[in-house]
Simulated scan of single mutants.
Amino acid sequence: MTKNTVLEIAVCTVADKPAAEAARLAAMQAVRHYPGFVSWRALTALERGDMITDLVEWQDRAAADAAAEKVGRDPVFAPYMAAISAVSLMQHFETRQAI
């Protein structure tokens, strides 16, 4: 049975990967308490030293949207946002099938 969740995918470039990953870990600890949060997978590109990706799962789109607003006000996220040089992709996806 497929869970109808929303996956948020953010593909970013960073200038200082160790600093960005440390800031991301702090952000991950904060967001786990947000309403509707399911999971967060922190990905690091093997071929590009300056690329990271976040795969965040939410119960639904409303939870994802509410979290996006909260992130902008949450001081824990400021160092992570500052560490991101550019965002290549920021998109929400609905889960249709899973195995």
Rank of each mutant, 00 (worst) to 15 (best):
M1L: 04
M1C: 07
M1E: 10
M1P: 11
K3H: 13
K3R: 13
N4A: 14
T5I: 02
V6C: 03
V6M: 01
V6H: 03
V6S: 02
L7K: 12
L7I: 14
L7Q: 11
L7C: 14
E8W: 10
E8H: 10
E8C: 10
A10Q: 02
T13F: 04
T13E: 10
V14M: 03
V14T: 02
D16P: 07
K17F: 06
P18D: 07
P18H: 02
P18V: 09
A20K: 08
E21V: 09
E21Q: 14
E21F: 07
E21A: 08
A22I: 00
A23F: 00
L25M: 03
A26C: 08
A27F: 11
A27H: 07
A30P: 04
V31K: 07
R32A: 04
R32W: 00
H33R: 13
Y34I: 09
Y34R: 10
P35Q: 07
P35H: 00
F37K: 07
F37T: 01
V38A: 03
V38L: 04
W40Q: 12
W40A: 11
W40E: 06
L43Q: 09
L43M: 13
L43C: 12
L43E: 10
T44P: 09
T44K: 10
A45T: 00
A45I: 07
L46F: 15
E47T: 14
E47F: 08
E47I: 12
E47D: 15
R48G: 12
G49H: 10
G49Q: 09
D50M: 01
D50S: 01
D50Q: 05
T53V: 13
T53R: 00
D54F: 14
D54W: 13
L55E: 06
V56H: 04
V56E: 02
V56Y: 01
V56A: 05
E57T: 13
W58Q: 05
W58C: 03
Q59K: 14
D60R: 05
D60Q: 06
A62P: 03
A62D: 15
A63L: 09
A64T: 08
D65A: 15
D65K: 15
D65H: 14
A66I: 05
A67G: 05
A67C: 09
A67N: 04
A68T: 12
E69K: 15
E69N: 11
K70V: 03
K70Y: 02
V71I: 13
G72T: 06
G72M: 02
R73K: 15
R73V: 05
P75R: 04
P75F: 04
V76C: 03
F77K: 06
A78F: 10
A78L: 11
P79S: 04
P79V: 00
Y80S: 08
Y80E: 04
Y80T: 01
A82E: 11
A82N: 10
A83V: 06
I84H: 01
I84M: 09
I84A: 06
S85P: 01
V87D: 03
V87Y: 08
V87P: 00
V87I: 11
S88E: 15
L89T: 10
L89C: 04
Q91W: 07
H92R: 12
F93V: 01
T95Y: 05
T95A: 11
Q97F: 15
Q97W: 15
I99K: 11
